[in-house]
Design a protein around this nucleic acid. Structure first.
Lengths: 240, 240
DNA sequence: GCGGTAATTATGTCTATACATTATTGGCGA
DNA sequence: TCGCCAATAATGTATAGACATAATTACCGC
């Protein structure tokens, strides 16, 4: 056994919970009992239980003890792949084609644009992501030049705007909306599909503190793309 | 200051990272320096750094020190609402209409079905979710009678199969696939839309340990539904 | 120089102890 | 019986020290 004791305690408790031996709501042994069972100090047990608590598997209440939490379906981890990496991993060639790039004041009729722009203008970037020269996704991105002035110097010949932003701008919050829509004329032309075809539509807004950074709207060819969300395999929750 | 010292250290480091004062790759103070700065014991500092590490904000290397990790967009929390609750909250009336219900052996040609069935048969349930008598989603659900024999007694007059399973079967893992598809004839008829219209397609598989419990495929009317995923509000990461 | 080895330094784990916090339990008195 | 208060039992936070582990750095013999 090379793995640390607190990890062992953690994983054995976790196994008991996930196997159903400890049902939701059940009380698990107190720290005292566990330190007797494992012959270790309380800190060690506590570390194991803290990890389970922060992973959401148990709930700890003073005086009362620790209890198995009811797993909530309501939230899962959604993997949002980096397009370039995913395409490359499938053995295809990735390319981002820049279709347009202009700076403009926000549309005063669009509250989102106004809020994003802050006291400056917006950079509007249009482009298409390709996999092996087949269009995969069309993208329109608005970037706040107020928050990210240095992006004005970038021409995106070598790197997609998304990848550039990821590497250059620290962000703190993001929200992604996922829907299915019919391709309009513009999108259909860019993706080389027919108007009305089903597209996965992803709209993501990113903030740094209160400052909006970017708003991106992507249309994926419906037949070529899907997203995966997972809950469980508690192995993946703790760290790494 | 009522908040514990290790939380304070954690949040101050976090702020320094998120604000950009400590850029990705930068080395942050050693535990020794921090325990001098805050006048506390090493365990306290270590707890703060461990929390940051398990949240993925920093990376710790022996001998070398702790470094700010590059933020990864790759995973967000996806909210998966309970349909009945969401419809009701919008002030609409929710109804699940059962269209079919039969038991059958798994299709031997479909490896997923065979695996789900285990050594038993499958319960196949077809139905439509309505909001104010407008179709919202069509659903076909397969349930392993081997894992959940008691579902054979339920007639789903009062409760949808999804809600019943949530309340009765502890599960440990789930995987959700999200895509955009065109409605086929069957789906279009059920949803009262035209064949070929865009639908958000959600396929979710649920396990308890190695045992498959259920596989559900839902088609949502594209114009009536979307999903939201979030990352951030760093406050929400640690615990609570 | 070059390569192997030892010293150093930073994190990782663990113990033993102390006191704080808080919700429950039980008892005591009006 | 009801309500308040104190004892109790559990987790929460923190300290100080010991030893383990691993990677970098420095040194030394060749």
């Amino acid at each position: 056994m090379s793995l640390p004791l607190h990890e062992r305690i953690r994983s054995e408790m976790e196994a008991a919970i996930l196997s159903g031996a400890l049902r939701p709501g059940a009380r698990l042994p107190t720290e005292q009992e566990l330190m007797r069972d494992y012959g270790c100090a309380r800190m060690t047990v506590s570390k194991a239980l803290s990890a389970l608590a922060s992973a959401g598997l148990i709930e700890r209440r003073k005086r009362a003890g620790s209890f198995v939490a009811r797993p909530r379906v309501h939230s899962m981890m959604l993997d949002i792949p980096d397009l370039e990496q995913e395409v490359t991993e499938r053995g295809q060639r990735y390319r981002f084609e820049l279709l347009g790039r202009r700076t403009a004041p926000p549309d005063p009729a669009d509250a989102e644009e106004v809020q994003l722009a802050g006291r400056g203008e917006l950079l509007v970037i249009d482009g298409v992501h390709f996999a092996d020269d087949m269009p995969l996704a069309s993208e329109r991105r608005l970037v706040s030049l107020w928050s990210v002035p240095e992006i004005a110097l970038e021409d995106f010949a070598e790197i997609s705007p998304g990848a550039w932003l990821l590497g250059h701008v620290p962000w703190t919050e993001a929200e992604t909306r996922i829907a299915a829509v019919a391709a309009d004329r513009t999108v259909a032309a860019r993706l080389e599909i027919e108007t009305g075809n089903a597209c996965l539509f992803i709209e993501r807004r990113t903030w740094r503190g209160d400052e909006g950074i970017t708003l991106v709207r992507q249309h994926f060819v419906g037949s070529a793309y899907d997203l995966i969300a997972r809950f469980g395999s508690a192995r993946s929750m703790g760290g790494v």
